[in-house]
Amino acid sequence: MIKFFRHIRQRLIKENRFSKYLLYAIGEIVLVVIGILIALQINNWNEERKEKIAEENFFENVLIDLEKDQTKLEYYQKFYTKRIAYLDTLLTYVRNPNIKMGIEKFGMYVEPLFYASDPTNNNTTFESAKTSGAFNTFKDKELLKQLSQYYADFPLIEKSFSSVQRFIENQFEPIMYTLPESYMTQETGNLVISEGDVQDFYNKIATIKDFRNITPDYDGLLRTPIMENYLIGDMGRSFGALAVIKARYGMLRNLKLKLE
């Protein structure tokens, strides 16, 4: 093609047809410009297509992360709902001296209180895209803004869970250490809510026989003001954690609806 145009130019010059040569030159320039514009447009189209695919892949992977978050949040909600129920039961016995729990029931209701939950944040996809600068080319800025807020709020759940953990370590465990743990049996962990299987632990404890003939004064422990104060404090923190969980779950559901 280039050779063809060169031949035409040379013929016009030899024939001394300057005006036609000038028109031809302008036409050739126009064709070159049009070719460049078409090439740029194709390149832009390809870039936009790549950016669109990258954005779609990002949101698909974020949706997978949110599914994992949802599973965790449902577990946390179950954990703290059950915890509040156990605290409620124990507080009922504390405030009613006319009823007795029995040592087995006491063990089953206090044992779950030793356990706490660790929050998990599945934010790998979001942080990776943020670090790489991919957000600059994404079109859905409003959805990105909502995702940013969702992940920025994670410290709220960390703070709430940490509050419960510290309260267990600083208040509950010292109270329970005053009581011999000879009440523990294979059934003691039946009400425990845990992501891992803890039954082997209780089976092991049950195989170690206690020959001391000590009867734990669980009833006396239940009647102490310090036990009542602990149960109320734990319940307040558990309700706080549950509120944070529900709020985050609502944000997650809203995001999922938009992504789906």
Rank of each mutant, 00 (worst) to 15 (best):
L113R: 05
K258R: 11
K14C: 01
S19I: 09
K105S: 06
G107E: 02
Y177E: 14
N136D: 15
L73W: 05
F161H: 07
E195N: 08
Q186I: 14
F201G: 00
Y150S: 05
N123P: 02
G196R: 05
G220E: 02
E181Y: 06
A39P: 06
P174Q: 05
M184K: 10
V198D: 06
V244Q: 13
K209V: 04
I232W: 11
S238G: 14
E142D: 14
I168N: 03
T81R: 10
L87R: 02
G102A: 02
T188H: 01
L179V: 12
I53E: 14
E173D: 13
R223D: 03
K209Y: 09
L147W: 12
F114R: 11
F106T: 08
G196D: 10
K130L: 15
G27F: 05
L191S: 04
S162P: 00
N46F: 04
R11K: 14
Q199M: 12
T188F: 01
T224I: 09
K209H: 13
Q146C: 04
E104Q: 14
I42Y: 04
V198F: 12
K256P: 01
G107W: 00
G189P: 01
N123T: 03
I157R: 13
I64E: 06
I13H: 06
F18G: 12
G250N: 09
K100V: 08
E181V: 07
I64T: 14
E104P: 03
L222I: 13
Y218G: 06
Y177H: 11
Y21C: 08
I168M: 03
Y230F: 14
L156D: 10
T71V: 13
N44C: 01
I29E: 09
A243G: 06
G102V: 07
D234H: 13
F106S: 01
S238Q: 14
F114W: 15
I8E: 07
N170R: 12
G107L: 02
R11A: 13
F211M: 08
N98H: 07
L23M: 11
R95E: 13
Y93W: 00
Y109Q: 03
Q70S: 11
R212T: 11
S19V: 04
G133A: 05
E228W: 15
L23T: 12
N213C: 00
I8L: 12
K82I: 02
G250V: 03
A241I: 01
Q171Y: 04
N46M: 04
R253T: 09
I245W: 10
R9A: 08
K258M: 04
V244M: 08
A116E: 10
P119T: 11
S182P: 00
D69A: 01
D65L: 00
I29V: 13
E187A: 14
S148E: 13
S117D: 10
I38G: 03
D234R: 13
E187L: 10
K20G: 15
G250H: 06
Y75M: 05
G189Y: 09
M176I: 08
A134E: 11
N254M: 14
H7T: 14
L221S: 07
E56M: 03
T81S: 09
F161E: 10
